[in-house]
Nucleic acid binder design. Structure first.
Length: 411
RNA sequence: GCGCCUGUCGUCAAGCGGUUAAGACCUCGGAUUGUGGUUCCGAUAUGCAUGGGUUCGAAUCCCAUCAGGCGCCCCA
């Protein structure tokens, strides 16, 4: 036998028995998001590399070490690692800033990140996400979070934890970063290797380090004082307070997590995650926030925006696997022409029908019918002569001979 | 990129240096030439991820490679 070819590491097949789950995710997305006025958009799977470098941020891990990048005709192209940058590109390119705001878009599809696979993390994975453009008020943040919760509820997931935080605007965040670096400077040599890198690259990320020795350092009172301080400016604080009050009135349960930072550069003010306790260490099903400067950074007009993305594999991991639908009927017959005619007639009316294509023995056909269908439609010589069909309920073993018209009231 | 664990039929597995490589499920055939789901018989790995090595002898021990799992980092 020839050598077998396997799936690429970190990718996997979505097999027929699990595909119904995906249909549910997609159907509910379309249904729920359209209630909030969202329209679906589909952007290409690959884009010019520069889009992600400028969009996602070239200090991020995603851009630095996780992109599938290739050259074609002297252009550097990249398989999308996320879809916000692509949607923003399309928004700008298609002149959507001329549309009356807010512009609300949703998407679903595969994303690609070159990471070490583990539970809840593949190299090709799927996200469903939403982006809203043109509203700077906190009501937009609240609506977007509310919709995420609504969508999760529609899937039967209502025991998830919503965490929110505010990163402030570039101005006040810069101040906070400087304060944090200043107070940590004496401890720099005691930080773990990763934290020393973070100290330079992205000081906000220092806060959720899991190394015990670092945690201990962060517990020190003078450092806690900086971490716990409400560093954000008055405007940002007001935005955050309003968001919280909206969520309160809508009875969305949340916790404020001051350590919630998120790894993409484009976020400002509101960030949030929705987590599950049943997913292992990759426990976020949803992540998002506000990104008011991204559109401008990618060459568009200054446009505020909020959005989030959910990992569809992670959602599926929390959902039960639905049973595959059985056939309505399986035709048992040794007369292929008559069987085919009956099958086509019923299929045209919307029934799920199969019959034996290889003319096996009667008992074998019936055995097959009992496995795959609710009813066996027996079409033997007697039935054909009489212009009828014998219908057997395979669960109850009840059988009667009826005309094709009567058959419809049974199936 | 780093750390720990694991690779025996389509699936779940037993085996722990000398076996004919158990068993179960699935699949296929038969008992059963118009009545299934129960039952009973039978078939299906010259092969143990791949390549080396140790040994009289390797699925079993060692090394490398590949793949998978989990964790770190990061993220959905």
């Amino acid at each position: 036998m020839a050598k077998i070819i396997n799936v690429v590491k970190g990718t996997h097949d979505i097999l027929p028995q699990e595909v119904e789950q995906w249909h549910i995710l997609e159907k509910n997305a379309l249904e729920i998001f359209s209630r909030y006025g969202y329209k679906e958009i589909r952007t290409p799977i690959f884009e010019v590399t520069e889009l992600f470098a400028r969009g996602v941020g070239d200090t991020t891990d995603i851009v630095n070490k996780e992109m599938y990048t290739f050259e074609k005709s002297e252009r550097s192209l990249t398989l999308r690692p996320e879809n916000t940058a692509g949607v923003v590109r399309s928004y700008i390119e298609n002149g959507m800033s001329r549309l009356s705001p807010p512009v609300k878009l949703w998407y679903k599809g595969p994303m690609f990140r070159y990471e070490r696979p583990q539970k809840g993390r593949q190299r090709q994975f799927h996200q469903v996400g939403v982006e809203m453009f043109g509203v700077k008020e906190p009501a937009a943040d609240a609506e977007v979070i509310l919709m995420a919760v609504d969508y999760l509820k529609s899937l039967g997931l209502d025991d998830l934890e919503v965490e929110i935080n505010s990163l402030g605007c570039p101005k006040c965040r810069e101040e906070f970063k400087n304060n944090l670096k200043a107070v940590l400077k004496p401890e720099f040599d005691n930080l773990c290797e990763d934290c020393q890198k973070r100290y330079e690259k992205n000081p906000l990320r220092l806060l959720d380090c899991k190394v015990e020795s670092c945690k201990a350092i962060f517990e020190k009172p003078e450092i806690q004082k900086v971490i716990q301080s409400d560093f954000i400016c008055e405007e940002c604080a007001d935005h955050f307070a309003k968001l919280k009050s909206y969520l309160d009135t809508m009875q969305v349960k949340y916790t404020v997590n001051k350590l919630l930072v998120r790894g993409l550069d484009y976020y400002n003010r509101t960030v949030f995650e929705i987590k599950s306790n049943n997913l292992g260490s990759q426990n976020a099903v949803c992540g998002g926030g506000r990104y008011d400067s991204l559109v401008k950074n990618l060459g568009g007009e200054d446009t505020p925006a909020v959005g989030w993305a959910m990992g569809m594999e992670r959602l599926n991991a929390l959902l039960p696997v639905p049973e595959l639908k059985k056939l309505n009927g399986y035709i048992v017959s040794n007369s292929p022409v008559e069987a085919l005619e009956l099958a086509q007639k019923l299929r045209k009316e919307g029934y799920r029908i199969e019959f034996d294509l290889s003319n096996k023995k009667f008992t074998k056909q019936l055995e097959k019918a009992s496995k795959v269908a609710d009813y066996a439609l027996i079409l033997g010589e007697d039935e054909i002569k009489a212009g009828k069909v014998s219908v057997k309920n395979l669960a109850t073993s009840e059988q009667k001979t009826v005309s094709i018209e009567e058959l419809r009231s049974i199936l």
